[in-house]
Design a protein around this nucleic acid. Structure first.
Length: 354
RNA sequence: GGGUCGGUAGCGAAGUGGUCAAACGCACCUGGCUGUAAACCAGGCUCCUACGGAUUCGGGGGUUCGACUCCCUCCCGGCCCA
């Protein structure tokens, strides 16, 4: 359940109630695809101010499988995280696997060639929702068709059509499972429509008529320019139901978070800060980014980020982190991840305060 | 002293008459990553007046239209025999 506490012209402040507690909005979800944040412990994530973890249906289904997770007592129990968990449906994999032809879209779902051993794997709305229920997710995402930014209008029209058909199926299966288990996990619909505003609007309207606990903007940050991304969010976010959380999927970078909160978005997730951390790009609290492996940091003995909310960022020098990356020491990942996540979460905290 | 194998770009290591400025790996430099097939990927890495040119494969000489590749010689290293 979503409660709106305050809103300015566009930005909103609120709380989102889940089975595992409340979340202050707007917020950012660290991505722990397979049930773990790469390089950070749960405690470290919490210390930095994370309120919820995002996990992935496709990945957990493959490994270790929802069956195992269920036996463990559910995902929260399995990974030992008692805060809320949002599970992505596997719809994004339709996009990422589509880039290399490792998936085929069928009427009732998608046939993937899984990335672990190449076996065929079928996931559709029914399967995805079932898996997410088995995992015990607090916020369940519908299984959508996420096309690339390069898709033509007809392709996007088709993706919207598929997304809507599957959304209905997801809702049906979800309601049935909720009734059966007595659980009250939330189900979010996902708006597709590429860069076509009319398709976006239409998709949103249809989703609203089906009725979801929250609405997400999907199919963005998939290769289009930032200008286009902002254009869509700015136009569509205000049309999304005011009494339901609005989730911009896959975004983003500090400036994007700020801008999109201003457009009325409440929730975000993004692998970018964590991935680039592992690759040596360090986000700083002043909004800039440095490539710590660059030669110029070899003798940079000042702190990584003096104003960091991350202890690692404040207490370790750039030179040391440079060295850890060069020496391929795993501590490098932890320090970098902590620093980058702290920057993102601090941006969100400041936005809530404002 | 005799024999033998070898000396290739920062290092390791291919190439053994032309398609070689020279494979590949490492190191090094730079860039990219946005609901994670990503602790990954891409480009660069002799010099220059740079979509072209110059000089390279231990040194020198030779054979050849043409050599990193064949011959001679010198230098250096490994191993073996005295």
């Amino acid at each position: 359940m979503f409660t709106l506490k305050e809103k300015t012209e566009k930005a909103r402040l609120g709380t989102l109630k889940t089975q595992h507690g409340e979340i202050q909005t707007p917020f950012f979800m660290p991505v722990g695809t397979a049930g773990a944040m790469k390089g950070l412990t749960h405690d470290q994530i919490l210390d930095l101010g994370a309120q919820i973890l995002l996990c992935n249906t496709y990945h957990l289904h493959l490994q270790p499988s929802e069956k195992t997770v269920k036996k463990a007592g559910g995902l929260h129990e399995f990974v030992n995280w008692d805060k809320p968990i949002l599970t992505d449906s596997g719809g994004y994999q339709v996009f990422s696997f589509g880039q290399s032809g490792r998936m085929k879209i069928k009427k009732n779902g998608v046939e993937f060639q899984n990335h672990l051993n190449g076996d065929k794997l079928f996931i559709g709305p029914k399967e995805s929702i079932q898996i997410q229920h088995d995992l015990g997710s607090d916020i369940i995402m519908v299984f959508d068709h996420c096309p690339p930014s390069t898709a033509s209008r007809p392709e996007i029209e088709k993706a919207v059509e598929t997304t809507l058909r599957w959304a209905k199926e997801c809702k049906k299966v979800h309601d049935k499972l909720c009734k059966k288990t007595g659980k009250s996990s939330l189900l979010f619909g996902i708006v597709q429509g590429g860069l076509e505003l009319d398709l976006r609007e239409k998709c949103l309207q249809e989703l609203v008529s089906i009725g979801f606990d929250g609405y997400a903007l999907g199919g963005l940050a998939v290769g289009e320019s930032e200008t286009e991304l902002f254009r869509i969010v700015k136009a569509i976010a205000p049309l999304m139901p005011e009494d339901k959380p609005r989730y911009l999927m896959g975004v983003g970078m500090p400036n994007q978070l700020k801008k999109c909160v201003g457009y009325g978005i409440d929730m975000f997730d993004c692998v970018y800060p964590m991935r680039v951390a592992r690759h040596g790009s360090i986000l700083l609290s002043d909004g800039t980014t440095i490539r710590i492996q660059n030669n110029k940091f070899k003798e940079a003995h000042e702190p990584i980020d003096q104003n960091s909310k991350s202890e690692f960022g404040r207490n370790h020098s750039r030179s040391y982190l440079h060295h850890l990356f060069k020496a391929k020491e795993r501590l490098a990942d932890t320090i970098a991840a902590s620093q980058n996540l702290s920057v993102i979460l601090e941006v969100m905290r400041e936005l809530r305060e404002e």
